[in-house]
């Protein structure tokens, strides 16, 4: 019987480690899995800071006292029910609200420490640095090339325009699809392609912040996911602020999420910021019941 056991022992002996140290995996050398979605690091500098921002349309108090920092090379999402002021806030960041005669912003929005609403600040200059992509794809009724070249031409870009157009389209993940038809009308493109063209157009002016106001709400699911993937790529280089009514989208693409809600007082609907935190926290352990109710679909 001992023989039998002996052979058995021999047959398994090859797996036996000589010493414990040999078998011990070198923990220092094992790479930490690259998984995003955890807490974003705070190493990214604050590029935009909203302090006590109030927005009015005439007598109507649209947004009440919003304060939040936006860090560079991150995606910051604004979510909330309609009328919560999220679009108003994002449009105040590059002074698009100036185009509405009755709109008025109080409080401060600083960009690299400069108050965007200080006297002497030219909104045109602001918008060249803080680009915008809109809800509905809105390419100009021009060729694909001219759409991308529009911003650079306006700001008297002196470099190689062809190269800039190619670079912008490449970054917007559209180059391969359009490189053979740059002189075609932008309207010949599909909705998703048009939106990526609009992103390319915005990139072409070399902004460092991209504001996206529900950029995928007019697109089909596949086109939406492509835009989201693109945002993930773009945040390596740009700071992105996105307004979305699609909570899942905010969850998928953003590093930090601001949840806005709306108060109805004397018939006035005033938006306010309820909670601002890293996206994983908002979607796994929100600190406010309102946030919880909204993201779990139990709102109102």
């Amino acid at each position: 019987m001992a023989d039998r056991i002996g052979t058995t022992v021999d047959s398994v002996d090859h797996t036996r480690p000589e010493t414990l140290e040999d078998a011990s995996p070198s923990l220092a050398a094992t790479r930490s899995p690259r998984v995003t979605g955890g807490t974003p690091s705070d190493e990214h500098a604050v590029i935009l800071e909203l302090s006590d921002v109030n927005a009015y349309y005439g007598d109507f108090h649209a947004v009440d006292s919003v304060s939040l920092p936006i860090r560079e090379k991150e995606v910051t999402a604004f979510i909330g029910p309609s009328g919560c002021g999220k679009s108003t806030v994002i449009r105040s960041i590059n002074r698009m609200n100036d185009l509405i005669p009755t709109a008025r912003i109080e409080g401060a929005i600083t960009y690299h420490g400069v108050d965007l609403y200080a006297p002497g600040v030219d909104p045109v200059e602001v918008r060249r640095r803080i680009g915008m992509v809109f809800q509905k794809p809105n390419p100009f009724p021009k060729s694909i090339y001219d759409n991308v070249a529009f911003g650079p031409k306006i700001s008297k870009y002196s470099g190689d325009m062809d190269e800039l157009v190619e670079r912008s389209l490449t970054r917007a993940a559209l180059w391969d699809e359009v490189k053979d038809k740059l002189s075609d009308s932008a309207y010949a493109l599909s909705g998703g392609q048009q939106q990526r063209l609009c992103i390319a157009r915005a990139i072409a002016t070399s902004p460092d912040v991209l504001l996206m106001d529900e950029p995928a709400s007019a697109l089909d699911p596949i086109a939406t996911l492509r835009i989201e993937e693109l945002m993930y790529e773009l945040k390596q280089e740009y700071t992105i602020v996105i307004v979305t009514h699609n909570m899942q989208q905010a969850a998928r693409v953003s590093d930090r999420t601001a949840f806005f809600s709306v108060d109805v007082k004397e018939g006035q609907r005033t938006g306010r910021l309820v909670e601002f935190a890293d996206t994983a926290t908002i979607f796994t352990n929100p600190q406010h019941d309102e946030t919880e109710d909204y993201i779990t679909g139990r709102f109102g």
Binding site: G131, N138, F140, P141, F150, T205
Partner: peptide, 26 residues
């Protein structure tokens, strides 16, 4: 459409160039 003007302003165009390069051609 307003959206075309917004696109133009959003790209840092001023009023004059928006009228000349976007609104007029459209």
């Amino acid at each position: 459409p307003r959206s075309l003007r917004e696109a133009s302003y959003g790209l840092g165009a001023n009023k004059a160039s928006t009228v000349r390069t976007v609104v007029f051609p459209a």
